[in-house]
Design a binder for these strands. Structure first.
Length: 598
RNA sequence: GGUCCCGUGGUGUAGCGGCCUAACACGCCUCCCUGUCAAGGAGGAGAUCGGCAGUUCGAAUCUGCUCGGGAUCGCCA
């Protein structure tokens, strides 16, 4: 070994020891006859002193040292001079008197500094990812990631789960996201697809009698990127036989609690996790992935604002729409530019506009509300009594701003939930180190696709309808709730799962509703259905986004920061410069002809 | 495919028609310095302002296109 101790493991208990350390020169302070080096390794920093009285040759060599050179130093751990201690540093009470210095590598000046808080373009960071990852913050996030997966392995192993690796080269199915595709050399003109998730493989493993399976699985989706979406991401994938929905939820809940306890012991996690139905989530938050760290719940006010001569509202209701509102506490005196911001946000979310009612702060009682104590563009239609009724339902108080959206219910949900998220942050309604987990369950099995005029699966085709809803299958598919559940944290969807269909008859009926022909079914799912013919146990499971979980646990707002080598928004890698051209010989082998005209 | 923001020495910013022969901070280089820890002091090098085209007597600055990065809608069963 080039070193017998880590830099930051040294402290006053080790004074007098002779040690050898190795690492990177983090900073040098050259006082002429005395040179200080902050030496950095994975553990942290320690101060090295080069004193000509201790070692003349080392001192001369140390004059050459520059940032990020890699060095090995032998020396004695000594107590620092009185008054020269550095309380900011873990090793601040001691230093190493260097006797020997060996330069292991020189280094160019790095393109940016290796500190926790840097303000550098993402492109530069990714081009020099090896430098970026030297930053203690990034090291901490990679370690956090390790600790999380370690805990997952530990926990699930203790619970009798077996980790099984599934292939990366599998088969394209036209369902779901766009596939990443790999050409086959041995089968000219044919392609493998990279898995969007090991979904069908793990279900086959259930038929194989594995009973409890998990995998930290890479999943690939060729769709556009976002702050929380990479083309290649990692899932904790798990599946269990002979379980009901609650068994899966209980297990995952306990697992996630123990992960948080392990890696963020100072954080309080809701115990038990909140469990709400899909319907309740939409009703209260307008979203199936609500941020439950704060209130600002939505209220329906269709009844109190109809038939007042307000055309927008009456027409909306006539067309089967709904009128809902959200109350922003203390925002009653918002000016034009602030309300315009909210209107713009609502338009971005697909809405047409918003109606405001701003309540004065100096209102003694809403029961004696006067005309001049509230403002609204629709004021001439809104009597004090109507406003009071609205306040009753929405629980608005003096000084609040009531926002009203009228449209089809899906649009209203989108508009008000995006305003809710935006204002929750703006009004500082939650702390950064709060983790609010919530289960959302009882999702509908099907959604109506307006464009194609047909029912499509809300999750995937193997999710089981609730037993008592099987009777609606052919008559009212929209009414069917599924054994489908999502885990949500702080407004992020962390994962979703379901109890799967293991009955051939029900599976066929679901396929029929989606409108699959026999031929399609065989081509796409024949392998799985064939397996089901040989004794399929009842089973269910989940897929959980590991990157997002670590992003939240690490207090980050971008998934790239918890992935060692992520891609840019155009799915390229500035470090490797991928994707890239390949040789003509490679193309020929694959029987691929490029149409370079376009 | 759409919308929005950004692109100026190595890094981050300022400059937003002529005061620009492009400013500032950090970093870098040289020299001085025995107690610093964002060391200090003195001096120095380094950018044709992402690219192309246009407007103009004159463009880092205005316009168009394009490339790259970021945010977001669509998309992500």
């Amino acid at each position: 070994m080039y070193k017998d101790t880590n830099c930051a493991d040294l402290d006053k208990n080790r004074i007098g020891e002779s040690v050898t350390v190795a690492g990177w020169v983090s900073r040098r302070r050259d006082h002429g006859n005395l040179i200080f080096i902050d030496l950095r390794d994975r553990s942290g920093l320690v101060q090295i002193v080069f004193n000509p009285k201790t070692s003349k040759s080392s001192h001369i060599l140390a004059e050459k040292l520059r940032n990020e050179w890699v060095v090995q130093i032998r020396g004695d751990v000594v107590r620092r001079l009185e008054g020269a201690e550095n309380p900011e540093l873990k090793t601040g009470e001691i230093e190493i008197n260097a006797i020997d210095l060996k330069i292991l590598s020189t280094a160019e000046t790095p393109p940016f500094e290796i500190e926790n808080e840097i303000n550098v373009d993402d492109l530069t960071r990714l081009q020099y990812r090896f430098i970026d990852l030297r930053r203690p913050k990034m090291q901490k996030l990679l370690k956090l990631r390790h600790d999380v997966t370690h805990e997952i392995w530990n926990y699930l192993s203790k619970k009798d789960f077996v980790q099984v690796e599934t292939p990366i080269l599998i088969k394209s199915t036209p369902e779901g996201a766009r596939d990443y595709v790999v050409p086959s050399r041995l089968h000219p003109g044919k392609f493998y697809a990279l898995p969007q998730s090991p979904q069908q493989l793990k279900q086959i493993l259930m038929v194989s009698g594995i009973e409890k399976y998990f995998q930290i699985a890479h999943c690939f989706r060729d769709e556009d990127l976002r702050a929380d979406r990479q083309p290649e991401h990692t899932q904790l994938d798990l599946e269990m036989s002979f379980v009901h929905q609650n068994d899966v939820m209980d297990l995952v809940e306990d697992l996630f609690s123990s992960i948080v306890k392990k890696v963020r012991p100072e954080v309080k996690v809701t115990d038990p996790f909140l469990r709400i139905t899909y319907e309740e989530a939409i009703e209260r938050f307008g979203s199936d992935k609500p941020d439950t760290r704060f209130g600002l719940e939505l209220k329906t006010i269709s009844n109190v604002v109809s038939n007042l001569g307000i055309n927008v509202f009456d027409n909306t209701l006539k067309n089967g729409g709904i009128i809902r509102s959200i109350v922003l506490p203390g925002c009653g005196e918002y000016g034009r530019s602030q309300t315009d911001d909210l209107i713009e946000l609502s338009k971005k979310s697909g809405g047409k506009g918003l109606v405001f009612i701003g309540l004065d702060h100096e209102i003694n009682s809403l029961d004696e509300l006067k005309e001049d104590q509230y403002r609204s563009p629709l004021k001439k239609f809104l009597s004090p009594n109507t406003v009071k009724n609205i306040c009753d339902i929405t629980e608005a108080n003096p000084g609040d701003l009531v926002l009203i959206a009228a449209d089809q219910s899906k649009v209203v949900s989108n508009v008000l939930s995006s305003i809710r998220s935006y204002m929750g942050k703006k009004l500082n309604l939650y702390k950064d180190n709060e983790f609010n987990f919530v289960w959302v369950y009882d999702f509908p099995l099907f959604e109506w696709d307006e464009l194609e005029s047909r029912w499509i699966p809300a999750h995937h085709v193997f999710s089981s309808p609730k037993n008592e809803h099987i009777k609606y299958l052919e008559k009212e598919p929209g009414k069917i709730k599924a054994e489908l559940y999502d885990l949500v944290c702080n407004g992020y969807e962390l994962g979703s799962g379901s109890i799967r269909i293991h009955d051939r008859d029900i599976q066929t009926r679901v396929f029929n509703i989606i409108g699959y022909e026999k031929k399609d079914i065989n081509e796409r799912f024949g392998h799985l259905l064939r397996a089901f013919d040989f004794g399929a146990p009842p089973h269910g499971g989940m897929g959980l986004g590991l990157d997002r979980l670590i992003m939240i646990l690490g207090g980050q707002d971008n998934i790239r920061d918890v992935i060692a080598f992520p891609k840019t928004q155009t799915a390229s890698d500035p470090l490797f410069d991928s994707p890239s051209d390949i040789e003509k010989e490679q193309l020929d082998e694959l029987s691929i002809f490029l149409d370079n005209e376009e």
